[in-house]
């Protein structure tokens, strides 16, 4: 596989996205271009450069471990696509 190609079907599965055949083709071509472009970063020598995860780094931000009110069960379920008995409903996971 050339450096600018991307196995869209495989990566989409990793990301839990079902795509149409049309989307696979279009995204493959479009993302191929983008990946070709971002390879530009290989021009730079980054030896010895530390990565930046956050531009304004704050570390070990702590708060008091106190019980505080959160969403009620009813509020937490209000936007659920399916709920019963105070729980989210899902297809069966284990037979």
């Amino acid at each position: 596989m050339a450096a600018t190609e991307i196995d869209v079907k495989y990566v989409a599965h990793l990301a839990r996205l079902s795509l149409t055949a049309e989307e696979e083709r279009t995204f493959g071509a479009q993302l191929g271009q983008v990946i070709h472009y971002i390879a530009k970063l290989s021009e730079l020598d980054v030896t010895g450069i530390e990565p930046t995860a956050h531009a304004v780094p704050l570390v070990n931000v702590l708060r008091a471990d106190e019980v505080r009110p959160g969403l009620s069960n009813e509020e937490a379920l209000r936007n659920a696509p399916a709920a019963a008995n105070g729980l989210f409903m899902m297809p069966k996971i284990v037979e």
Binding site: V11, A15, L17, L31, I38, L41, L44, I49, P51
Partner: peptide, 28 residues
Amino acid sequence: KRRIILGAYVLSSGYYDAYYLRAQKVRT
């Protein structure tokens, strides 16, 4: 969808150092 796929790709095994880690260094 495109951005999720691209993001999953640059984080995926074998590409992480070449893309994500390098991009964070360029960010520095």
